[in-house]
């Protein structure tokens, strides 16, 4: 029970910190001091106190976008285990619910963007749904590999691997899907090289452009949900990259937090050393991720 409470607390509190770490890393690379680590918390507190400006064209769908996104990401987060601990909710087949919750979020986010009637936001929404057509199969290939290696259909047990750790024969496929999942993580959380979260205009062409017209608490919810999504997908990825456990509960929690921070640093490094891809090249990257996961799958079933 205590484990679950700790995890839920971490899930709800820690995500905005990740963005702080990423921003700090990028600032270091650029030779700047950068924002405070807790900047997003301050932003969220400010946004929650603000009023709400709505466009004349919008309907209830515009409000449903951020709300559904937040709820689905939290529910998806409850299905993912942290470190060696069991996830708060787990059942056979929860991996499908996990993937489809993100689908529901995408449905309402993109519909909310179209609700403003702006061509610019329409473009972002079209790109989001297009790229998802490639990243979803990639994620499923990765989940198939994990299911095959661990022999279960429960996300928690799949990520923890079979008793006694992943077998040596699973190393190559796991490396493949780790790379694939990292690309999916970058694409789904809209980081460079897929999307540039720093600007609002020409450079930011997928996620930020969809939320241009959201303001006040709605924008706050969007920012918070985006960081949560990074946390949740990151937790999945960490199981594949570093399936290490110490056996002591407090050390495992500390390790989990450190690993998560290290992942944020890694994302920051990628963002600092790479340029954003041309929009028409993004599908190639995602297809590569899908192929990697697909090859991983072939390796486990050969």
């Amino acid at each position: 029970m205590l484990e679950r409470l700790i995890y839920i607390a971490l899930l709800l509190i820690m995500p905005p910190l990740l963005l702080g770490i990423i921003n700090r890393t990028k600032a270091r690379f650029a030779g700047r001091t950068g924002q405070p680590l807790f900047q997003l918390y301050y932003d969220l507190a400010k946004l929650m106190r603000k009023g709400l400006v709505l466009s004349n064209t919008t309907t209830w769908v515009f409000i449903a976008g951020p709300v559904v996104t937040l709820v689905t990401v939290v529910l998806a987060g409850l299905l993912v285990p942290a470190g060696p601990f069991a996830s708060p909710i787990s059942f056979t087949g929860d991996l499908i619910l996990f993937a489809y919750l993100f689908g529901l979020a995408r449905f309402f986010t993109t519909a909310a963007a179209l609700d403003t009637g702006s061509a610019f936001e329409g473009m972002g929404s079209a790109r989001e749904v297009t790229f998802a057509c490639l990243s979803e199969p990639a994620m499923f290939f990765a989940l198939l590999v994990l299911a095959k290696v661990s022999g279960t259909l429960t996300l928690s047990e799949m990520l923890h691997g079979p008793a006694g750790g992943f077998p040596a024969s699973a190393v190559a496929p796991l490396v493949f899907i780790a790379i694939g999942l990292f690309v999916v993580l970058l694409a789904e959380t809209c980081r460079i090289p897929v999307d540039d979260p720093n600007t609002h205009l020409e450079l930011t062409m997928i996620h930020e452009v969809m939320v241009l017209d959201h303001s006040g608490p709605l924008l706050g919810v969007i920012l918070y949900a985006a960081s949560l999504k990074m946390f949740v997908l990151g937790a999945v990825l960490l199981h594949v990259i570093v399936p290490i456990q110490t056996g002591m509960a407090w050390a495992d929690w500390a390790l989990f937090v450190i690993e998560m921070g290290a992942l944020a640093v890694a994302i920051g490094v990628v963002e600092s050393v790479m340029a954003r891809l041309q929009m028409r090249h993004v599908p190639y990257l995602l297809v590569a991720a899908m192929l990697l996961c697909g090859f991983g799958f072939i390796l486990v079933v050969r």
Binding site: L54, S55, L212
Partner: peptide, 10 residues
Amino acid sequence: EAARAGTWDC
């Protein structure tokens, strides 16, 4: 609700 306005759209 602070205001109803046209779509901002940058």
